[in-house]
Amino acid sequence: MDPIFVVLIVVVVLIVVPLLWYIGVMNSLRQMEVKINEAESGIDVALTKRFDVLTKIVNTVKGYAKHEAETFENVTKWRAGLPKTLSLQEKQEFMGKMDAVQSGINIAVEAYPDLKAEKLFSNLQASISDVEEHLQAARRLYNSNVSRINTVIVTFPRSIVAGMIHMEKKEFFEAETTKREDVEISF
């Protein structure tokens, strides 16, 4: 065999193939990252929707669940909508606070069957449960994407590429972190 040809094969095997593999893994990691960002914006949309519906509920039950209404009133910094710069941790906290307010309202309105029977209130309750389902879906989609990218990041040899492009393991969006906390949270 021609020595030049042999050298060419060695070059291809040692340089071109690993280079193509590197590019392939890097691209797939970047694509996964984009999907995570998309999923995170899905969480933002769902959180904002939930905030809007919860605001309506709070306005409806003001007279019945004063404490919860006051607690919710304190969430002034979110009134203009969810800030774009919010970290995942802050979003989780935000969700936890809404969980707390909502569970407080649910407990408070138990004592008022008239309110529960009201069409407007029952419609709002149906809306909030649908919004919550959307939020859960967004959270699960986000976590599923995170799980996929984290698997790649920690699995050899693709972990080498992840290290070279400084890609670190992503944080999961936990559902239940603050749900069970006391209703009285200072905002």
């Binding site: 899905g42 389902e133 959307h134 859960q136 879906a137 967004a138 699960r140 989609l141 976590n143 599923s144 799980s147 996929r148």
Partner: peptide
């Protein structure tokens, strides 16, 4: 689309035109 349940993914293949909806419907 792959859902979070490994057993479910093994048994069924899930196809959707909107990933979010797949997670929304398939609780």
């Amino acid at each position: 689309v792959k859902l979070e349940s490994i057993d479910f993914n093994k048994k069924f293949k899930t196809y959707t035109t909107n990933e979010h909806s797949a997670f929304y419907v398939l609780t």
